[in-house]
């Protein structure tokens, strides 16, 4: 059995697909701490844009939507996500076209589930992300998502905040999307020191006031609240802190 170790980028994954395609007994993974047994071989994949491009072209020719499926899969925090994506590609190639509709096929089921989880978290955080205004009028949003969705969110907010600069900071992965009002740049970002605008507290307090007054206290349903808004997101919500 061969392990193709990848670095988490899409290009590296597609390179691995190119290298591993003919190998019947292998998996592709970005997990560095895999337990190796006897007869296991590890292959550190080095990104080769040429190979990656060829795999992409092949897949695009068979199914125009597949690249987006795979891109979402690779953002997931699921272990073995690369392998699910690999199986999915093999299925598309052996079928000679899109397989999304094969809703009874185990690989398609797994793909759909992971994709839905990533997409679902991105959708949730379009609502739960909270910006604070700093002294220079830049909006800053720290958060800690399960999946690597910062670039998806950045595109969403750039359309909304057209022309107004913001930073979305994934503090767990130490990456940030910076938007200067024109374009989005992804960058490494450790700890950030923020000087808040003098109005920040005032609006946070009004928001907390609003949150408390719209609740209908005679109809408590905390379980449902937690179901829709999981506790792990609360530490970034002014109304829940």
């Amino acid at each position: 059995m061969t392990y193709y170790l990848v670095d988490g980028s899409e290009d590296c994954f597609y390179t691995a697909v190119f290298d591993a395609y003919k190998n019947k007994d292998c998996i592709i993974t970005s997990e560095r701490d895999v337990q190796l047994g006897l007869g296991f071989e590890v292959f550190d994949v080095v990104t080769d844009e040429n190979k990656a491009e060829r795999v992409r072209a092949k897949i695009n020719a068979l199914d125009r939507g597949a690249a987006e499926d795979i891109s979402l899969l690779l953002k997931s925090n699921a272990s073995l996500k690369e392998n699910v994506a690999f199986e999915y590609i093999k299925l598309i190639i052996s079928n000679g076209g899109a397989v999304r509709a094969m809703q009874a096929n185990p690989t398609v089921i797994e793909m759909t589930q992971i994709r839905t989880r990533v997409y679902g978290e991105a959708h949730k955080l379009k609502g739960f992300l909270r910006f604070m205004e700093n002294a220079d009028g830049v909006m800053y949003a720290p958060y800690s998502p399960d999946n690597d969705i910062t670039d998806i969110l950045a595109v969403h907010f750039a359309a909304r905040f057209n022309g107004r600069p913001f930073v979305i900071h994934d503090i767990k992965r130490k990456i940030a999307a910076m938007y200067d009002g024109n374009e989005i740049v992804m960058t490494y970002a450790g700890d950030a020191e923020i000087y808040l605008s003098e109005y920040e507290d005032y609006f946070q307090n009004l928001w907390k006031q609003y949150y408390n007054s719209v609740n209908i206290a005679s109809r408590p349903h905390e379980k449902q609240m937690r179901g829709y808004m999981p506790v792990r997101y609360w530490k970034f919500l002014p109304e829940k802190r």
Binding site: N215, R219, M225, Y228, M229, L237
Partner: peptide, 8 residues
């Protein structure tokens, strides 16, 4: 949805 209140 941007938040959920304790009434769900």
């Amino acid at each position: 949805c941007h938040s959920f209140t304790p009434d769900g």
